[in-house]
């Protein structure tokens, strides 16, 4: 017999709580002011413009390091989110204990290559990541970032990540 479908609000509350726990526990994400929009399992990272993100005061333009950091944060959260999703949907994660210190470990960056396509304007920036390969030990993730127009990317990046050990194993 089929399990009865959960009420939509229960599903949304659970997914939002998991995402919040993942994002709010990382001080650096808060420092840059990055937020995540969720539509089903699709995430969009949002970087609201702020004066402290400026790298060239004359233009002004967003600091290249901020762009790199924004893309890297987006890639790591997307990858962690994709790892968390199945366990969360299957009810294998206890939401009551879901705080930053009890989340599954985050993947570690092995390398990250950023392609700067145009200068980052003093506007909000958006980014979406795609996990191209997610193996037991390694993952490859591509990220795209834009500002006013979705088709005019201002930066893109590819990174390789070391997957966290499965729960219950010591590393």
């Amino acid at each position: 017999m089929r399990k009865p479908l959960e009420p939509v609000q229960v599903v949304k509350t659970r997914r939002d709580a998991a995402l919040r726990a993942l994002v709010s526990g990382v001080p650096y994400i808060q420092f840059l002011g990055i937020e995540f929009d969720r539509r089903g399992d699709e995430l969009t990272a949002v970087l609201p413009f702020d004066d402290k993100l400026i790298g060239n005061p004359l233009l002004p333009a967003i600091h290249g390091g901020v762009t790199a950091a924004f893309l890297e944060v987006t890639a790591i959260i997307e990858l962690s989110w994709s790892l968390l999703w199945e366990d969360m949907e299957a009810g294998r994660i206890d939401l009551a204990t879901l705080d930053p210190l009890h989340l599954p470990r985050l993947p570690k960056t092995i390398d990250f290559t950023v392609d700067y396509l145009r200068s980052g304007l003093p506007r909000d920036a958006y980014a979406r990541a795609r996990v191209n390969r997610s193996g037991r030990r390694y993952a490859s993730v591509h990220v795209e970032a834009w500002q006013d127009n979705r088709t005019r990317l201002f930066a893109q990046a590819t990174g390789h990540f070391l997957m966290p050990p499965p729960p219950g194993t010591d590393d």
Binding site: P27, Q30, A69
Partner: peptide, 19 residues
Amino acid sequence: LRLVGDPRTGVIHGGAVSA
């Protein structure tokens, strides 16, 4: 502390090293 990427270990986020 504002630049920490992993709250469990206190390690600085790779993004800050990139910057």
